[in-house]
């Protein structure tokens, strides 16, 4: 009975939290959980970052050689295609010589997925639409009035808001919607990796540590029983 009262009490508490998951104009962000264990996905994500983001956004805490090691990138590809600047060493951070505070206000992306969450970034990238009232000509459902232009328009195609506030596709982009979706997943995966490179090692090795302590507990339990 006591437990029931507790339960009812807590359910009523959680009931009041409605509306707090709001994602900008949306009721809820599209759900996406990043994974850093698919190396191909990370490499594709790096490609999108390099082609579409890197002219404004830095990765100020990530070193090129760390990236090379973790994503298994050949030295020549790294130096010729990715860095392509002989003044930048492989041990430098991924900043392309951009200043620390971007003149156009583009934030550093290294820790962005940790600040906003995977869901938010993933949804944000998908919900640009045409809006002539904005200086950039486009607006965003998750972050209304965002200063960022719809740079992925060539891939995604144009979108528009209908009278119900739903997104509708106006024109085709270079990618089919499913392809674009998977490209955005790659990009978020890559950014999630950039936010915490140690995550690859962490999530891979954790299970062994836990298993070790299961054994530890079992042995110590037997010892305790012996002396009980």
């Amino acid at each position: 009975m006591k437990k029931l009262i507790f339960l009812a009490f807590f359910i009523s508490l959680f009931g009041y939290s409605a509306g707090e998951n709001k994602c900008g104009e949306l009721e809820k962000c599209f759900s996406f959980e990043s994974s850093v264990h698919d190396r191909d996905s990370l490499q594709r994500g790096l490609g999108i970052y390099k082609n579409y983001c890197s002219s404004c956004h830095t990765l100020r805490y990530l070193r090129w050689n760390r990236l090379q090691r973790d994503l298994d990138i050949p030295e020549t590809v790294l130096i010729d295609d990715l860095i392509s600047n002989e003044n930048i060493k492989t041990s430098d951070f991924v900043t392309f010589g951009l200043p620390e505070i971007s003149p156009i206000g583009a934030p550093d992306l290294t820790l962005r997925t940790r600040v906003r969450g995977d869901d938010w970034i993933y949804t944000y990238l998908q919900t640009f639409y045409q809006d002539t009232s904005q200086a950039t000509g486009s607006n965003n459902l998750v972050y209304p009035g965002t200063a960022m232009a719809h740079v992925l328009i060539g891939l995604q195609g144009t979108q528009e808001l209908d009278s119900n506030g739903k997104l509708i596709r106006l024109s085709k982009g270079a990618l089919e919607p499913e392809e674009f979706d998977s490209a955005m997943k790659d990009l978020v995966n890559f950014l999630a990796y950039a936010s915490e490179p140690a995550r690859i090692e962490r999530e891979r090795n954790g299970i062994y540590i836990i298993l070790f302590f299961v054994v530890f507990t079992a042995v110590m339990w037997l010892l305790y029983r012996e002396y009980k």
Partner: peptide, 16 residues
């Protein structure tokens, strides 16, 4: 000791 073991299982599950 077994309590410490169980604690570490939970602790490292969170850490990792």
């Amino acid at each position: 000791l077994p309590a410490i073991g169980i604690f570490f299982i939970v602790f490292f599950a969170i850490v990792y």
